[in-house]
Amino acid sequence: MAKKFAPRQLTLSVGILVICILIAVALSSWKETPEKEREPDPVPLVDSIILEPQSLQLTINSQGVVSPSIETTMVSEVSGVVKSVSTAFVSGGVFKKGDVLARIDDSDYQVSLSQAEASLAASTARLQEESARAEAEKKSWLKSGKKLDAAPALLLRTPYVAEARANVKAAEAQLRKAQRDLERTQIKAPYDGMVKERTLNLGQFVMAGSQAGSIFSVDKAEIRLPVKSSDLAFIAMPAPVKLTQRFGLQEVKWNAELTRAEGVVDDRSRMHYVVAEVTDPYGLNATIPQTPLKSGSFAQAAITGKSLDGLFRLPRNAIYGDGKVLIIDENSTVQFRSINLIYSDNTAVFVNGGLKSGDRICLTPLSLPIEGMKVRIKGELLTAETIDRPDAA
């Protein structure tokens, strides 16, 4: 019985196998053939600029603290009780040259002046008396028929006259001292200025040499500005300086002038220092009210440097670490070119060597640039005026 059904089972198995093969072939034909990935273009796309010579008015930026051109510590030159204090002798008070800021009780100094005047009067009278006696003795000696050269000095009262004359000189010196001491009871301003602080008060006893206060001049202010040694070569004095301070949303500017360079270099920062002067920083003589440039405040400074011609301006990202740029020739291949850097700011560098007008510079940084490699220039060529635009690419 088994032998009878063997061919039928074989036929059935072969049929099932054929059906499976057909299904597998059909399924495989329905699968889409994947697209072949597009190979990247081996020629990089770059931005470029055609060089044109430019003139550059250099500006050196710095910052510093405003200080008065003259600051003085006032002291009492005599001892005594402070009798009066000027209303201007307070912090921030403004005064003129010669104004009396404080007075010390001068009663004792008036007495000393009277005594000196009396002493001078007595010494002068004594000199006149001795001079008259000497003249009388001289006439008597000559009447006797003797020569004046043979007369003894004591007889002619020469030593007494000299002593009286010396006493007069001493009395005159004492009188001048008494007059100066009396004048020094008034503490006067030596120049037009402003009070920084006052340390004496009404009724206080002060000794000679005691500090009375601190004042400073207001005709000029100074600001000490650090500059790099490389920038110092581009500064010619005198040079205009623009000072800027910001008060919230308000920005205030003052005109200043660079007047001198200090003769030393900071031993820690290795910076050079130049000094700018501002006239009338508090605006006391201005016809239009202005914001004062206060002593001790911080200000930004823009120093107008020398004017240079024939420079080429490049963005910083066009410079490679070894001080070279990539030139794109007429065959759209790149070549390295060494440059001579003259000046740089926050966005660009300026060169005057190694390049010429009409050279095309590659602006796109390349990771592994090789001389002779091909590049493609992106869109319209940029110009020197557009290299800082964010949409330049």
Rank of each mutant, 00 (worst) to 15 (best):
K3Q: 11
C20E: 00
I21D: 01
L27N: 07
S29G: 15
K36E: 12
E37M: 07
R38C: 06
S48F: 00
S55K: 15
T59C: 03
I60Y: 04
I60W: 03
I60R: 12
I60G: 14
I60S: 11
V65F: 04
S67A: 10
T73Q: 09
S76N: 14
E77M: 01
G80I: 12
V81Y: 07
V82F: 07
S86T: 10
S86E: 10
A88S: 09
F89H: 14
G93I: 06
V100C: 05
D105P: 09
V111T: 13
A116M: 06
A118P: 03
A121Y: 05
T124D: 00
R126Y: 00
E129N: 08
A151E: 09
A151N: 05
P152L: 08
L154K: 13
L155Y: 13
L155S: 05
P159Q: 08
R165T: 14
V168M: 13
K169N: 07
A170S: 15
A171W: 12
L175G: 02
L175Q: 13
A178D: 04
Q179I: 00
I187D: 03
A189Y: 00
P190F: 12
Y191E: 11
M194G: 02
L202W: 00
K220Q: 09
I223D: 10
K228C: 15
L243C: 10
Q245M: 15
R246P: 00
F247Q: 09
Q250E: 02
E257Q: 04
E262G: 12
G263T: 02
G263S: 02
V264K: 04
V265L: 03
R268H: 07
S269M: 01
S269F: 00
R270L: 08
H272P: 00
V274A: 07
A276L: 10
E277P: 08
L284M: 06
Q290W: 05
L293Y: 01
S295P: 08
G296P: 03
G296E: 03
G296R: 01
S297V: 14
A299S: 11
A299E: 12
I303G: 09
S307R: 11
N317A: 13
Y320M: 13
G323N: 07
K324Q: 13
K324S: 09
E330M: 04
S332E: 05
S332I: 02
R337P: 05
L341F: 04
I342E: 02
D345A: 00
F350Y: 13
F350N: 06
N352H: 15
G353I: 15
L355F: 12
K356H: 15
C362Q: 09
C362I: 09
L363S: 15
T364L: 05
P365Y: 00
L366S: 11
E371L: 01
G379A: 14
A384Y: 06
E385F: 01
T386G: 03
P390M: 05
